[in-house]
Design a protein around this nucleic acid. Structure first.
Length: 1067
RNA sequence: GGGCGUAUAGCUCAGCAGGUUAGAGCGCGAUCCUGAUAAGAUCGAGGUCGGUGGUUCGAGUCCACCUACGCCCA
């Protein structure tokens, strides 16, 4: 006996029971240890200082589904372990917030040791929730986690640094980075984008630079512009003291104009927008190139960087550069390399001058001007006032534009040329691009689109952060920076300092205390920087195994990964850092297959965020519908790469549509199997009916499809194929075969039905196991494992189903499709004629677009008659004269062949009618070519190239689709009417039995009465009394009013009503 | 400003070597079927397939431009 199945299943509760069983039987550990051939997975590490959300559910579900599939195929999954990302600015900012800090000085005062201790603790703040979440969503990972802050992990990243160092790929340079003066650090591009706004109100000033002369060789304009003003535009007056040059567009047209007694120079195209109309007259025209080499009087003297010597001869001149655009401004661009134009400065040999320090305050050198020490944005008005007083301000106003802010603290950022450490990834651009070509991306467009594009525009990776909680960069230097070493292992460092460092925490500040005296170069100290935390996660293929210090063989087997999966925002994040580290170190990709997920939006298409209050917690969904429903929704609702709108209602729909359908089919099977005491492998013979063969053919086709889709990492297609099959299994196979299960004879036909349905359910349970691990487990346990001690105890330890080639039958599947189309058309025709299916009809005419479709229907004619309740099916061919034929070209074929002739050809075919059309239809049906004149030409059409349609025969109800036509004879004879009436009565009684709460096997005393339609009732009973009695298990049938204690219903009958009364019979 | 993606029914989404009447599910209304079903079937209302132009005998599908949104970059 199977365990009985509750049709009112509560999935969340069911899932809790499964979780308990997995625990009690150690299933997770067994699954993790199973398999032989390796399949390598990399877990992208989250940080546990925030709660798990829906976006974690989707990525973890897509990770899990592939791993379960591979595991069922007998693979041993390598790297199926937790990983935690623990370093980085976000962690530090959390702690700063808690302590009420406002920048690095606060941290230094507080003490780095204590600060880092708090950071280390805080990354585990929600670890319990993460553990519970991971378990509840059935994401199976070993708890043997890799943790990026552990010494072993850090040591591996040091090894990587050393590899890069030895190959000259680590370098130090000025580089403009986005700098947050409050946090005191550079921000990654990723971080900058988080805080940028495009509606920032800033000053907009037009500034005049007085021309004083020219360089050698002289510009084309020579000295004629001496005393004139070059007009430049800026929204950052605070950068003006750092100005070193003015740039023009080399081929653009410039003008010298007379304006209020002064001569001004700007781009011709922009003069109108800079100066009021009619306020100026154009004196002369130049090309941009003509101006190159002019010298001008600086507005202020900028301050050279520490240790830099400046050749002032190179400054304060006009250059030409591509960065100049004529979209806005004046066509003359103020260049301040320190605050953004470093590349331009370098190209033209300009020095880098500063006006503002790293703290965001104007340098003390400007104290005599009155704005030294002011925060840079607050210095803007002072600088503008100063210029105005000196007559160097043409115009000032305000503008709304894009400006970046620190994503955590909201402070305006500055572009700032700082000395930082870089990895020279640009040297490997070609390799990065080539290795990317080996990766299978889902969706495909990411490879050459977003990711490929990003690689094409590769820039060197800024790797250093002037922060505290991170992997310390293992570079030690002497005081003047003339000697540097990169340490690649703990042992190497121990050798340098001559003591054991085994118990040392490798983080700051402890690592900073590790110094040694170099006999030639003096005291060696570590540089203060820590690594970009993306470097940590990108190093995980190496560092998770403590390679090369340990586990060399695992690493070598486990690189590259067969599969990873994260959301699309990781293209510039983890996907890139993995790829970059792998390419630079090993010249191969880090992963072979990747599913790149779209984001989950709320039901209005807006990103979920705490501040908007539109966040749906996974727990809310899971407790309402269960994990299987949520997972199934995530797999089937949209292709994985698409952004998706999420709502509870959609998960509920997913549950009803798939899980409940599957569950009810399963419940049906178990109910009857138990009544019949049916067991699998019982040795009885089965006589398979065509519909059984169809189910098995469709099932094996499904196995084939799902397997192929999985091999292509196409989870969406795989899941939807299963959903489609389950729908057909339930709504066609089971519905059509109910009587075979409940009939009393235990013959070979019944055995065939049981075997077929059993096979389908067991196979579907296995196919669905990677997607919906809980319900699959329940079904498999009850149907297989609890009956058969030799079977694996869990569906997740079972083997993936194999295709039985002998059962595949594409013809049978196609024929059934044809049948289903015919059934659907027949119902449509009935609806049109307002004839319910219970009313039998005499005949149905059918014609199909092709003979093979027609034969398909013919094969299942009995089913068609039964489904549509008709006595006979007749087939229309071109010889029948009851219908009018219409002909159309098969455009798909004809279009290519006849091109421009198509419209005329279509018209010529359409114009055929009557006998001509019938003759043409007959020719096509007989496989003969059709000749007809088109546009004066004699055209020959092959039979395939013509589509034949037909009108409805007279007096028939007709429905038509895809070339198939079904026509019902709508004449209801008296005989048919009585049969229909009998079926009505049976239906009413069955309904009444159900409403009265009778058991299926209860016998009844039936009362029927019909005041208005006595004639019909009498006539019906005269003919169908026995049929009605036996169908409804009536031991007695009385015409007349039921007794008072009877259960009574009244229904429509003929043109009147009938009263149905039932009393349970005592047998 | 640039790149990538998305835009199809009230909602969630399919569709595409360019081809005949643009689909599914949900929701709504109606009818039907049903002794597994919270199910199913049929019909109906509901579509300028984001917009404009182009290529073509023919464009939701290809091309160009534009708009909105998302992500990423500057």
């Amino acid at each position: 006996m199977f365990k009985s199945v509750d049709p009112n299943v509560k999935f969340p509760q069911l899932e809790e029971e499964v979780l308990a069983w997995w625990d009690a039987n150690n299933i997770v550990a067994k699954a993790l240890a199973s398999g032989e051939k390796p399949f390598v997975f990399y877990e992208g590490p989250p940080t546990a200082n925030g709660r798990p959300g829906l976006h974690h559910t989707i990525s973890r579900s897509f990770k899990d589904v592939i791993l379960r599939y591979r595991s069922m195929q007998g693979y041993r999954i390598i790297g199926r372990r937790e990983g935690w990302d623990t370093h980085g600015l976000p962690v530090e900012i959390e702690i700063e917030k808690k302590l009420g800090f406002s920048g690095k000085p606060d941290i230094e005062r507080f003490g780095i040791a204590e600060f880092n201790r708090l950071c280390r603790e805080s990354v585990w703040e929600y670890i319990q929730e993460w553990k519970a979440f991971t378990k509840r969503i059935a994401f199976w990972l070993s708890e043997d986690a890799y943790i990026t802050y552990e010494n072993d992990y850090i040591e591996s990243t040091w090894w990587i640094f050393r590899q890069l160092w030895d190959r000259g790929l680590l370098f130090r340079d000025y580089k403009v980075t986005m700098h947050c003066p409050r946090c005191g650090t550079s921000l990654s591009d990723h971080e900058v984008s988080l805080g940028a706004r495009d509606d920032v109100d800033d000053p907009s000033v037009y500034v005049k630079f007085r021309v004083t002369g020219f360089t050698t060789p002289p510009p084309a304009v020579d000295g004629t512009l001496n005393g004139a003003f070059l007009v430049a535009w800026t929204t950052t007056p605070w950068t003006l003291p750092a100005n070193v040059a003015l740039a023009v567009k080399h081929d653009a047209e410039y003008v010298e104009v007379e304006h209020q007694g002064e001569r001004l120079v700007m781009a011709a195209a922009l003069a109108q927008s800079v100066l009021p109309a009619d306020s100026f007259t154009v004196l002369r025209h130049f090309r941009g190139n003509d101006l190159v080499g002019l010298r001008y009087e600086p507005l202020f003297r900028g301050v050279p960087g520490d240790g830099d010597t400046v050749d002032w001869e190179t400054t304060y001149r006009v250059i030409a550069d591509e960065i100049v655009s004529l979209d806005d401004g004046t066509g003359i661009v103020h260049i301040a390399p320190a605050y953004g134009d470093l590349e331009v400065g370098r190209k033209h040999g300009l020095p880098t001058l500063f006006s503002v320090g790293l703290d965001g305050k104007v340098l003390p050198q400007f104290s005599e001007l009155g704005f030294a020490g002011k925060f840079f944005k607050e210095a803007d008005p002072d600088i503008t006032r100063n210029l105005k007083a000196r007559g160097l301000l043409l115009r000032s106003g305000r503008v709304r534009h894009y400006y970046p802010f620190c994503w955590r603290c909201g402070t305006p950022l500055l572009y700032y040329a700082k000395r930082s450490w870089y990895i020279r990834t640009t040297a490997f651009k070609a390799d990065l691009v080539a290795n990317n070509q080996q990766i299978h991306w889902v969706p495909e467009h990411i490879r050459d689109g977003r990711f490929g594009n990003w690689l094409e525009n590769n820039i060197d990776w800024a790797i250093s952060r002037e922060r505290y909680w991170g992997t310390p960069i293992p570079i030690w230097t002497n005081a003047d920076g003339s000697h540097m070493v990169c340490i690649g292992s703990l042992a190497e460092l121990e050798a340098k300092v001559g003591r054991s460092l085994r118990d040392l925490d490798l983080h700051r500040p402890y690592i900073d205390e590790v110094v040694w005296e170099d006999p030639q170069h003096g005291l060696m100290r570590r540089i203060p920087d820590v690594a970009d935390c993306w470097f940590d996660s990108g190093s995980m293929p190496v560092a998770q195994w403590h390679y090369p210090f340990e586990h060399r063989e695992i690493f070598e087997m486990a690189h590259p990964a067969d599969y990873i999966c994260e959301a699309v925002d990781q293209t510039r994040g983890w996907f890139y850092t993995l790829h970059a580290v792998s390419t630079l170190l090993f010249d191969r990709p880090a992963f072979k297959n990747v599913i790149c997920l779209g984001h989950i939006l709320d039901e209005h298409g807006i990103k979920m965020s705490k501040s908007k209050g539109n966040v749906i917690e996974p727990e809310e969904v899971i407790s309402a519908y269960g994990v299987d429903a949520l997972r199934w929704y995530l797999f089937t609702a949209a292709p994985p790469g698409n952004a998706r709108r999420f709502s509870m209602a959609l998960v509920s729909e997913s549950m009803r549509k798939f899980l409940l359908t599957l569950w009810n089919t399963y419940a049906f099977f178990v109910t009857y199997a138990n009544l019949d005491q049916w067991q699998p492998n019982n040795g009885r013979t089965a006589e398979l009916q065509p519909i059984d063969r169809w189910a098995l053919a469709a099932l094996n086709q499904l196995v084939q499809q799902v397997t192929a889709a999985f091999e292509d990492y196409d989870v969406y297609t795989a899941a939807n194929a299963i959903e489609h099959f389950v729908d057909e299994l339930s709504n066609w196979y089971v519905r059509r075969n109910r009587r075979r299960f409940w009939k009393s004879e235990g013959d070979a036909d019944k055995e065939a039905a049981y075997q077929t349905l059993y096979t389908c359910l067991v196979t579907v349970a296995k196919l669905a196991a990677p997607f919906t691990p809980f319900v699959s487990e329940v079904m498999y346990r009850n149907l297989v494992a609890e009956r058969d001690p030799s079977a694996p105890e869990s569906v997740h330890l079972a083997r993936w189903p194999q295709v039985d080639q002998t059962l595949l039958d594409p013809q049978l599947v196609a024929d059934t499709e044809a049948l289903l189309t015919a059934v659907s058309l027949g119902r449509a025709a009935r609806k049109q004629a307002n004839l319910k299916v219970r009313q039998p009809l005499s005949e149905l005419w059918l014609r199909a677009s092709t003979t093979s479709v027609l034969n398909g229907v013919r094969r299942f004619e009995a089913e068609l008659r039964d489904e549509l309740n008709v006595k006979a099916v007749r087939y229309l061919d071109a010889s029948s004269t009851v219908v009018e034929y219409r002909l159309k070209p098969n455009l798909r074929l004809v279009g290519k062949k006849f091109g421009k002739l198509v419209p005329a050809l279509t018209a010529a075919l359409r114009d055929l009618s009557g006998a001509a059309a019938r003759a043409a239809a007959q020719a096509v049906e007989a496989g003969q070519p059709l000749r007809l004149p088109v546009d004066g030409q004699d055209v020959e059409l092959l039979p395939d190239e013509v589509l034949v349609e037909s009108s409805a025969p007279e007096g028939y109800a007709v429905a038509e689709a895809d070339g198939m036509l079904v026509a019902l004879n709508t004449t209801v004879t008296e005989e048919l009417r009585l049969e229909g009436a009998a079926r009505d009565l049976v239906r009413y009684v069955q309904d009444a039995r159900k409403s009265a709460g009778l058991a299926i096997s209860d016998r009844i005393h039936l009362f029927l009465n019909s005041a208005d339609e006595t004639g019909l009732l009498t006539a019906t009973l005269a003919r169908y009394r026995d049929y009605i009695s036996s169908e409804t298990l009536s031991v007695e049938l009385t015409v007349g009013n039921p007794p008072a204690d009877a259960y009574t219903e009244t229904d429509e009958f003929g043109d009147g009503m009938v009263t149905v009364g039932i009393v349970k019979a005592t047998v």
